[in-house]
Amino acid sequence: MSISLFYFVAFLTIFFSLLVIFSKNPVHSVLYLIVTFFTFTLHYIMLNAQFLAIVNFIVYMGAIMVLFLFVLMLLNLNEGSIGSKSNLLKMVGVIAGMCLIITLVGSVKALNDSDPLILQTQDLGLVKNLGKVLFSKFLLPFELSSILLLSAMVGAVLLAKKDIKQG
């Protein structure tokens, strides 16, 4: 039951992420990306990680993708307005894609060696346990990532300020 459900959701994830790439209209792409993120939420729920599931739901679907859609609607890009890409860009794209394939193949080869992922405790993903682990065992990475986010925020505010001065 559980394993077939996983394969079904995994199939949906891959299907919708392919649609993200293949749809011509940027707004349709973003909408498919939202559905893809929703399937991620389903994956988290199947791992019994309720907190991560709902945070993924709020942050990715509720905030980041709304901003993506907002920007796309503001610019109102169409198929024609993007224009054709130069040969140099295409070459760079091919090289980057090759690198990604090599990495993916490498990781798939390493998959057999490592242990299969098994949940140590079923309640690991609940808010209480996650909070306890974050504030004791992983305190330093947690605080460091918060500093990283803060610096990104300061950077964004600075960029926005610069625009106002010029205009």
């Binding site: 707004v27 939202i34 709020i58 509720g62 709304v66 859609l69 907002f70 808010v127």
Partner: peptide, 25 residues
């Protein structure tokens, strides 16, 4: 009674804007 009920409400509220955005576009 999911143990992240408040966050669930928050998520549903943030999802509500998609109906308006998609319809408007």
């Amino acid at each position: 009674d999911i143990n992240v009920g408040v966050l669930y409400i928050f998520g549903v509220v943030s999802l509500g804007v998609y109906g308006i955005m998609i319809g408007g576009w």
